[in-house]
């Protein structure tokens, strides 16, 4: 069975999980305050950022600092519990498919969910920006090329973070520890992006990318620049290490 079909199988297992309801709810809660407080975007002279850029960046800052990583942890819980609830994992392990492939297909689904969550946020951003434009009689809509470039950056930078969350979900059998460790790891992101060692903390990557973009868009607000070295090699190393350990540990508890 090829890898793409296996991703399809893994995707199919999450039917009727109500996860989309949670994703929609999260996105609505993310953008509603932005619309309600849209007049605040006109008072950003001190930072030197245009209202439309501020509208966009504040929403995505809120998303990347907590909501997006936390929802990704919820999805890892969904994936692991779907396998464990009625022992579906036992059936999978007794079928002719390599556990490494199975583990990677599940990770691919997680990465796919990350893309969906970001795309939903982009979609809701455009709806919110259109509503805010109507309320304030000011054009808040940014060109799609810019918005999708930022969305793509958030998604790509989140892959190492997703690898860490997947490692936690696979390796920590006790649900409260895997959930607790994951959620607790998000909280220090806000501190980590202000340190020189931000590149060693994958949970801070998407937030760092957006904060850095904020610095570029705001004339009077300086934030750290993205240095691809040592970021990219470190991120690649962390991702590879997390996925290798996840693949080695996947299904071990059921194969004792």
């Amino acid at each position: 069975m090829n890898f793409a079909s296996l991703i399809g199988v893994e995707w199919g297992k999450l039917r009727r999980s109500k996860i989309f309801l949670i994703l929609v709810l999260a996105t609505v809660i993310l953008w509603t305050p932005s619309v309600l407080n849209s007049e605040l975007n006109f008072g950003m002279q001190a930072e030197g950022i245009s209202p439309e850029n501020n509208f966009f960046i504040q929403g995505f800052l809120a998303m990347t600092w907590f909501l997006f990583p936390a929802v990704m942890i919820v999805i890892t819980v969904l994936q692991i519990q779907t396998e464990r609830t009625d022992h579906g994992i036992l059936k999978m392990l007794s079928l002719p498919v390599r556990t490494t492939k199975l583990c990677m297909a599940k990770f691919a689904v997680l990465v796919l969910f990350a893309a969906i969550q970001i795309l939903m946020s982009v979609g809701t951003y455009y709806i919110s920006a259109a509503v805010a434009s109507h309320i304030q009689s000011y054009d808040f809509l940014l060109p799609p090329l810019f918005v999708f470039r930022e969305a793509g950056m958030i998604w790509a930078s989140s892959i190492p973070m997703l690898a860490v969350f997947w490692l936690l979900a696979v390796c920590i059998q006790t649900p409260i520890f895997s959930i607790g460790t994951g959620l607790a790891s998000i909280v220090p992101s806000v501190l980590m992006i202000n340190t020189k060692a931000w590149f060693a903390y994958p949970m801070a990557y998407p937030f760092f990318v957006i904060t850095s973009e904020y610095g570029r868009l705001a004339a009077n607000f300086s934030t750290a620049e993205i240095d691809l070295i040592p970021w990219l090699p470190t991120a690649a190393l962390i991702t590879a290490a997390c996925l290798t350990v996840s693949c080695l540990r996947f299904g071990q508890a059921e194969r004792r």
């Binding site: 993310l30 907590f66 909501l67 609830t85």
Partner: peptide, 19 residues
């Protein structure tokens, strides 16, 4: 019945609180 539904709802509520 499913833990992720409760966890997801909780996470969204915590996020709403931060907003």
């Amino acid at each position: 019945r499913n833990m992720w539904t409760a966890l997801g709802t909780g996470v969204v509520c915590v996020f709403a609180a931060t907003m």
